[in-house]
Design a protein around this nucleic acid. Sequence first.
DNA 1: ATGATGAAGTGAACACTGTTCACAAAATGA
DNA 2: TCATTTTGTGAACAGTGTTCACTTCATCAT
Lengths: 225, 225
Amino acid sequence: MDDHMISPAERRRLRVRDSILEAAERVFADEGEAGLSIRRIADEIDYSPAAIYKYFGSKDELLNELKEAFFARILTNINDIYECSASFPERARACVTGYVRTALEKPHHYIAAFAGQAPLAPTPSDPEAFRSTNRAQAFMVLAGMVEEGITNGHFRAELNPLDTAKAVWASMHGIAMMMSHFQTFPNMSVLPSELSRDAFVDFHADLTIRGLETHPGQAVEKRGG
Amino acid sequence: MDDHMISPAERRRLRVRDSILEAAERVFADEGEAGLSIRRIADEIDYSPAAIYKYFGSKDELLNELKEAFFARILTNINDIYECSASFPERARACVTGYVRTALEKPHHYIAAFAGQAPLAPTPSDPEAFRSTNRAQAFMVLAGMVEEGITNGHFRAELNPLDTAKAVWASMHGIAMMMSHFQTFPNMSVLPSELSRDAFVDFHADLTIRGLETHPGQAVEKRGG
DNA sequence: ATGATGAAGTGAACACTGTTCACAAAATGA
DNA sequence: TCATTTTGTGAACAGTGTTCACTTCATCAT
């Protein structure tokens, strides 16, 4: 069988498809979801609006692909950080700040990914499909990190890894959203901050991780295996 | 001068205006921002679409009024909690959970309030106008709470009250968003939770406040004045 | 080479959106 | 009673996502 062989036609099709995604990505990053219309994409790549529907079932489908690609980026980054050689408490903080910093690279994407009212999970009921989601994978890295911290002795033993990971995710999500939405947060015009955006991300991560630690902000000897 | 006197005409006008807001509120709460169109509101109150523009400059203006009203609700709740007689560490946690719980009463509103790409602050440059915002007031309550905790000795002395309040707000915002968006969070189909939604709010608030505390999860003697 | 099959691409339309504007109806003030 | 302002409307404009009959074109079997 020639599964791996793709005809020139298929290659051509894929190229057009990618050009659609690329144009959408460009407009989206620059002008946000508001500025992104099918007709606009069509103009950008010199096709008719209807042509796009030969490649994507709907605008939402197209957008979902952009969002998933973005979460794939976050996943890669968070994974790289998790697997780096830094010792534990720093690694945990680096995971959190890494997520936020990657999210802030494309504010419009991050906002859009959670703005749509549709339940974000494409297939909530199917475990297989869910676990293949980039979002889910990024979350599992986080959960693994929490679990490691617990067996480490750095994090409190009574914590439930999954629920704790969800709570940490929620907090990360909060600051990512806040800073994506308000371009100058935490330095709001009337309520100035002493911290730069970068420093604030670190500060917030520190608070978040502190909430999990057995001896917050202090070194601790290893406990279990 | 008869500033306080309002003519029957004005009273009538206000009544129509309110009916518009009320209809919008109803549709919005039920079906979210997607289901809310000018024509839909017009249908609901038996007016023509154009009539609405005699009462509101634009759809955004109308929506902003809904959102502000919602934040006023949050402000009231958070204020009530802050001024209640409970002793400190519990009061801090109650503030956080109160914010989140009020937000969760109208998920669509909360999402919409932060989904619009426009900088949420109506007048970022004008301090006067900003401070009159319900959002700003709710935030100041939070900042006051943090400051009290610091002078209390419950919260670490090295914390900057304003920046800390912003970080706490971000975390609260995160869980509020998450639970508004995913209707079953933290109980996701494939990643079930041991905690009910209510218990999870408490859990998250505990983690958040712990990050600020001098002796997390323990009683502490008062320090300063 | 020829004719058939299906994919790629299009223009025009549909149903919807927020918004505007000339105009009518009604209430108000002189 | 007349003039003026306010309140409300229908029709239209420009925009949206989407569909569909239609052409154009590449592929493939005979």
